[in-house]
């Protein structure tokens, strides 16, 4: 896009932004109130299943949004994000097995393990581009998968029970929901600030034209690596939350179909749109629930739906919402 097009586009956006912002804030506050009151509502109506579903959706929103940072804003197709998700979850379970259940130790450890893995893997993978990047992220994910499965004392193929960590008071289902809500909201706020800061602009510039971004003077490799590590760390946080939610971890959390599912949520929401993670993960949970309740072969219909989305609405739900604005 030429410089002139860009300024016209920005002016046009600013013009629509004001009345839109008003509507968005209104809708946002209503949604926020519903989310805050949801556990009480669920208890009153004996909807414990829906509370669990809502917690799961919140956690997947975090994972998908974290992936969207590298996939959408960075243009880096990571086919191995299940690694960071699984490592975050396994950190919680393994530490619990070893008798460490203090929350102030376990949570930072889970995020740190995922971040370190992302740093090491990203440092190698980011030297390649395109298809080779897809395949090498997948290769590393497979390595970590087999590595974790080989630890028989931590469950191997069978997975591992993950008792919840201790905040000084026991964590019930409602507390896990609030914890998820808090962490997801904080992470989304952080990501929002990040992608609208200089860092986020540079990341997008490198996605759109790497040669130009390098020539302008951006340290492209370092920017992409930082984005990769942040994305991995937040995905690890999502994994830790999921371990608290289900109180069980399994190698499936590290498997490549799991990575594919995260990618699907992002593309369903709309790659590179900020709300892609929220829309995509929410829609995915709803679609799965819907077909799950209707038929045994629900994955068949989930697959067909996703195929239709990829072929018919390649810009995802966010693209549909935005309509013809572009």
């Amino acid at each position: 896009m030429r410089a002139r097009d860009l300024s016209v586009e920005q002016a046009r956006r600013a013009g629509v932004a004001l009345p839109r912002a008003f509507v968005l804030w209104g809708a946002g506050s209503v949604a926020g109130l519903v989310l805050l009151a949801f556990p009480a509502l669920a208890q009153a109506l004996e909807w414990s299943y829906y509370l669990s579903l809502a917690t799961k959706a919140l956690i997947l929103v975090l994972a998908a949004s974290a992936l969207n940072l590298v996939l959408g804003y960075g243009g880096l197709v990571s086919f191995g994000h299940a690694t960071y998700y699984g490592l975050g979850a396994y950190t919680v379970a393994v530490l619990a097995r070893e008798g460490v259940r203090q929350a102030w130790l376990v949570w930072p450890a889970a995020v740190a393990v995922a971040a370190l893995a992302a740093l090491a893997i990203g440092a190698v993978c980011l030297r390649t581009r395109g298809l080779y990047f897809i395949m090498i992220t997948l290769a590393f994910a497979q390595m970590v998968y087999y590595f974790v499965v080989s630890f028989k004392q931590y469950g191997g193929q069978d997975g591992l029970r993950a008792p919840r960590t201790d905040f000084g008071l026991p964590l019930g289902d409602a507390e896990v929901y609030y914890l998820s809500l808090l962490l997801v909201a904080a992470s989304l706020f952080f990501l929002w600030r990040l992608v609208h800061a200089r860092f986020g602009r540079a990341l997008q510039a490198a996605r759109d034209n790497e040669v130009r971004a390098t020539t302008v003077g951006f340290p492209v490799y370092r920017i992409q690596l930082v984005a990769f590590v942040i994305s991995g760390a937040l995905t690890g946080l999502a994994g830790a939350l999921m371990a608290h939610h289900t109180q069980y971890v399994s190698p499936a959390m590290l498997s490549w179909p799991q990575s594919g599912h995260f990618m699907f949520m992002v593309i369903l929401g709309g790659v590179g749109r900020f709300w892609a993670g929220l829309l995509g993960a929410g829609a995915m949970v709803l679609i799965e629930e819907l077909f799950h309740s209707l038929t045994v072969s629900w994955q068949l219909y989930v697959g067909l739906t996703l195929l239709a989305v990829v072929l018919l609405a390649p810009r995802g739900l966010a693209g549909l919402v935005e309509g013809r604005r572009r």
Partner: peptide
């Protein structure tokens, strides 16, 4: 990305 997802579906 589109191809990976379409064929994954």
């Amino acid at each position: 990305l589109t191809q990976v997802l379409a064929t994954f579906a």
